[in-house]
Design a binder for these strands. Structure first.
Lengths: 190, 190, 190, 190
DNA sequence: TATGAATGAGGATTCATTCAT
DNA sequence: TATGAATGAATCCTCATTCAT
C-alpha cells in the first residue's frame, strides 16, 4: 500500500499534516489531518501505513525541501563565505515564507516517532551543505571537530534565528546579518 | 493528627517523572510515573492537580536547578570570560552527570503543556545568567541584538554540545573546549 | 462507499440505555449500555458525542413517544372528558406495557444532565396535550392557574398512579378508574 | 461507629449534606459535604459508615421533620378539612422556608441509594398524617383505594405545588389556595 | 476521636487502525 | 480504490473508603 498512483492525494495529506502539526502540535489527530486534506479518515491509511510513517515521510520531505531550496542558485565559483551567505539568505527566505513548514519541522525534529533511518536520510540529502561547511571551516578553529557537530551547531543557530525573526519580524534584516556573522565566527573564526 | 504529607513523595514523583519522560517522552503516562515513583495512581493527583501541572513544575524545577548549579562558585571578581567559562563548565558537568534530567528538559522545553507563566518563572530564575551574558557581550558584535536572542542562541549552542557529548563521550574534553571558544566568539567576537 | 451508518445501532443504543437506566439508575455506565446494545465501547460515541447527549436524546425520545402514543386514536369530535379519558387510558397502557421506559423516564426527568433545551423540546411536542388540558379546564376551578402548573400536576398524578399500578398490578383496573376521576375533579371540578 | 457522642458534628454533616445535595445533586462528593460541614474528610466516615448510610439517614430526617412540622398546632377537635388545611399551610411554610431541604429531599426521594427500610421508616413516621387522610377520605370517592396510594398522591400534588411556588413566588397565595381545593377534591370529592 | 494522606477500582472519552461496503 | 463506521486499548482523572498518626 505504500505507494499508490494518486500523487496529489499523497501531497495533499502531507501538506495538510504540515498545517495541522504547525497549529496543533504532534498531537494533531489523523482525523484532523485527513479532514484538512479533504480526504476520508480511511484514505489516509491507504497512503501511509501508519501515523508514524506519515510523520517520518513529512520530516524527510520538509527537511529535504529546506536543504534543496537553500542551495538553489548557489554561486558556483565563489568563496565559501559568499556561498554560505547565499545559503543562509535562501534558508531564511524559505523559513519566513513558510512559517508553518518551519513550525512543523521544529516539532518533528524532537519527536520520538522520527526514526534513526529518517535522520540518516536527511543527512545524506544535505551532503552538499555538509561539503560547503567542510570547505568553510578549513583552517579554522572548528577544523578538527566532528563534522556532524558543526552541522547541528549551524542548524541550531539558524533555527534560533529563524524563530526569533518569525516571532518578531521588526528588525529582521539587522538580526539576520548579525546572526550570519556569528555563524561565520563559529565556523571560520575571526 | 493525620499522616503528614510526605515531601519525599512529591520529589519521588518529580524524579520518577524525569526518568519516565527521559525514556518515554512526554507520552509517559501518569500511571507509569506513579509506578516508577512507588506510589499509587491516585496519589500522584494528591500532589499534582493535573498531568500538565506536574509537567510545568518539573520544567521549572529542572531549569532552575540547571541555572543554579551553573552559577555555584562563580569567581566573583573575575573577568566575564573567566566567569562564562566557569558557568559553561558547571553547566556541562550538570548535564553530563544527569543525562536524564537533560533529556527530560529538552522534551519539556518544546511541550505545548508548558505555560507562559512557567517560561516566565524560569526567565526570572536565570536573571543572573542574563547579567553575565550582558557583561560578556559589552562592546562586542552582539551588543545591539536583543538580549533574549543572545540568551536563546547561547542556550542552543550549549544544548547541541551537551547532546553531542552525551551521545559520544569519547573526545568530550576537546569538544567542550572548542564549543566554548565558539560561544565566546559568538558573544564577544574575536 | 463505506459501510452505511446503521440506524438500528442508534436505536439499539437508545434501547439499551433505557434498560440499563431502568435497572441501574443514571449511574449506568456507558460501558454497560454499549455492552447491552451489543456494540463496542467506542461505537457509542460515534452515535452520541457525550453520555449527557445520549441521556438528553433518550429523554426527548421517550417523552415524545409517550405523548404521541397517548394521543393515538383520539376521538376527534368528542367532549373533553371523553378525550381525556382516552388519553389517560392510552397513557397507562403505554406505561404499563413498557415499565422500563417509564422507569428510565422517571430517572431522566430529575437528572441535572437534562438541559433546558430538552425540556423545551418536550414541551412543544406535547402541545396537543396542553390544548386538551386547556379545553378541559375551561370554566372549572383551575381556569386561572398557570397552564404549566396544571400540566405538571396532571403529570404527577398520572405518574403516581402508574407507579402504583406497576408495583401492584392487582386491582389495576379499579385504581385507574378512581385515579381518572380524581384527575378530572382536579381539572374540571365536580 | 454508628452513633458516637458529638451530636453537633452529626447534624453539622447532615446539614452540610442538605446544602451540598441541594446545589450539586446526589453527585455531591463526600469531600464536598465534609468541607461544607467544616469537618475533615475522614471524620465523615466516623459518623456515617457509608455515603449511602448518610443519604438514608438524611432522607429519613428530612421527611420526618417535614411531617412533624406539618402537624404542629393541629386544631384537635376540628373538622378534617380544617385540619387538612392547617397541615397543608404548615407544610408549605416549611418547604418555602427551607427550599434547600425541599430540593435535597426531592433528589433523595428518587435515589436508588435509599433503601426500602428507609422508605418504611418514613411511612411509620407519618402515621398521624395517614390517620388524618383516612378520616378525610371517609365516605368520599377515594375511600376504597389503597391508603398508600392516596398518601403518595397527596404528596405528589403537594410537591408539585411547592416546586411551582418556589420557582415563581409571584402569585403564591392564590396558587396555594387553588391547589388545596384541588387536593380536597381529590380526597373528599366535591 | 480526629485528621487528611493514600489508595485503586472504575469511568467517560479519545484515537490510531481495521474492515465492510 | 475510497470511504467512514466500527473498534477497543489506552488515558487522565475522580472519589468513596481506609489507615497511619
Amino acid at each position: 500500500m505504500a505507494r499508490p498512483r494518486n500523487t496529489d492525494r499523497r501531497s495533499a495529506i502531507l501538506s495538510a499534516a504540515t498545517r495541522a502539526i504547525a497549529s496543533q502540535g504532534l498531537g494533531a489527530t489523523t482525523a484532523m489531518i485527513a479532514k484538512e486534506a479533504g480526504v476520508s479518515n480511511g484514505s489516509l491509511f491507504v497512503y501511509f501505513d501508519t501515523k508514524a510513517a506519515l510523520l517520518n515521510e513529512l520530516y524527510v520531505a520538509l527537511k529535504t525541501e529546506m536543504a534543496t531550496t537553500s542551495l538553489v542558485g548557489l554561486p558556483a565559483g565563489s568563496e565559501p563565505r559568499e556561498q554560505m551567505l547565499h545559503m543562509w539568505t535562501q534558508w531564511l527566505r524559505w523559513a519566513t515564507a513558510s512559517p508553518e513548514k518551519r513550525r512543523a519541522l521544529a516539532q518533528l525534529q524532537v519527536s520520538d516517532d522520527i526514526t534513526a533511518a529518517s535522520h540518516q536520510a536527511v543527512n545524506s540529502a544535505s551532503s552538499a551543505i555538509a561539503d560547503l561547511l567542510e570547505r568553510s571551516r578549513a583552517g579554522g578553529p572548528m577544523q578538527d571537530a566532528p563534522l556532524g557537530f558543526v552541522l547541528t551547531l549551524t542548524n541550531a543557530i539558524a533555527e534560533t534565528t529563524i524563530d526569533t525573526v518569525i516571532r518578531e519580524p521588526a528588525d529582521a534584516e539587522a538580526l539576520v546579518r548579525v546572526a550570519f556573522d556569528a555563524i561565520w565566527r563559529v565556523i571560520a573564526g575571526a
